[in-house]
């Protein structure tokens, strides 16, 4: 996190500094989110595609992995859409019992 607060030579004015911090925070979170997705894909697609680990990946295992990756991402998109729409629906129906 040192990049967040480290001096970068010139002294930018406070607003620029603030924006820079915000951007760094958003970037860190985006990276963490992507890592989480990659970990989940690996976990689940390994389980689906590599039933018997041998000395190297076979081409059919590689095909399975790449298909599995796009399917997992499609599932992630579907879940995101359903979840977000459900949350906004619940909020509309019962304001105050937000998630």
């Amino acid at each position: 996190m040192s990049s967040l607060f480290g001096s970068s030579g010139a002294t930018p004015d406070m607003a620029a500094r603030k924006e820079q911090m915000k951007q760094s925070i958003q970037q860190e979170l985006a990276i963490a989110n992507a890592q989480q997705l990659i970990n989940k894909i690996n976990e689940n697609c390994f389980a689906k595609c590599i039933s018997k680990p041998s000395t190297s990946l076979t081409s059919s295992q590689e095909t399975c992995l790449s298909q599995c990756m796009s399917l997992y991402m499609a599932a992630f998109d579907q879940v995101s859409r359903s979840y977000v729409s459900r949350i906004s629906k619940e909020r509309g129906a019962a304001p105050g019992i937000g998630l």
């Binding site: 989940k40 689940n44 599932a75 879940v79």
Partner: peptide
């Protein structure tokens, strides 16, 4: 986002 990751995992399985 963490909830979405968890839910995706659950629904995938």
């Amino acid at each position: 986002q963490a909830s979405i990751h968890e839910l995706t995992n659950t629904c995938w399985n």
